[in-house]
Computed example of a mutant assay.
Amino acid sequence: MYDRGSGSSSPPEEIAYLLAEAGRAVDALMAERPGLRLLDPVHQTVLRTLAELGPHARLDLAEYLQATPSVVTQAIDDLLAQGLMQSMVVTMGGRHEVVALTPAGTTALNAMQHDLESLHSTLLASLTKGERAQLRYLLRRVRASATRAGVLRPSPS
């Protein structure tokens, strides 16, 4: 239970502490779930994007995700090695390597989604649906501010 009376008397100090603690809690809960432990956020984003949009060329995927091509290429190579994606060469308007999800990739994505929902339920159990929506909105604004300040890269989609 949250105790309003405890913590620092300095609101900025307390907010920084609480955000750090929340991050540690998310990391700890993610480490307990196999679907999240195997895939870092870049890998998760690549899988989710391919599930939503279908097969994509490597460079198009990096451009769509607004990510460095080398970062996306490394994630794709990792996912190919795990059998979660497949690669094929397409010769329409030139030669392109296109990547797509495999059935194993779809299964991994479903397991990851299940684990995320479980993590969400555990961590945010004391919040109402409206409070969860408000928290999401506020955290998106905090992230946008951090991105504008150059602390974080723009998030993929």
Rank of each mutant, 00 (worst) to 15 (best):
112 M>I: 05
28 A>S: 11
104 A>K: 09
9 S>G: 10
18 L>S: 12
100 A>C: 11
68 T>I: 14
72 V>Y: 00
59 L>A: 11
57 A>K: 06
83 G>K: 04
81 A>H: 09
120 H>W: 13
117 E>C: 15
153 R>V: 07
133 A>Q: 12
12 P>M: 05
60 D>Q: 11
24 R>C: 04
141 R>I: 06
10 S>P: 03
86 Q>R: 15
29 L>N: 11
2 Y>P: 09
16 A>I: 12
11 P>K: 12
79 L>P: 00
80 L>R: 14
146 A>P: 01
127 L>Q: 05
136 R>T: 07
6 S>C: 12
111 A>N: 14
112 M>C: 06
47 L>G: 02
26 V>K: 07
93 G>N: 12
60 D>E: 09
46 V>N: 01
66 Q>G: 13
149 A>L: 11
138 L>C: 08
1 M>G: 12
72 V>W: 00
48 R>G: 03
147 T>A: 09
82 Q>W: 09
106 T>C: 09
64 Y>R: 13
39 L>A: 03
49 T>Y: 03
5 G>P: 03
92 M>R: 15
67 A>W: 01
118 S>P: 03
32 E>H: 14
99 V>E: 01
31 A>F: 06
114 H>I: 10
76 I>R: 03
91 T>N: 14
142 V>Q: 13
78 D>K: 15
89 V>E: 10
136 R>A: 08
99 V>N: 00
38 L>D: 08
21 E>T: 14
43 H>E: 10
1 M>P: 14
149 A>G: 11
150 G>F: 07
100 A>H: 06
85 M>R: 07
59 L>W: 07
20 A>I: 09
100 A>G: 06
152 L>M: 12
97 E>A: 12
95 R>W: 11
84 L>W: 04
91 T>G: 11
73 T>V: 09
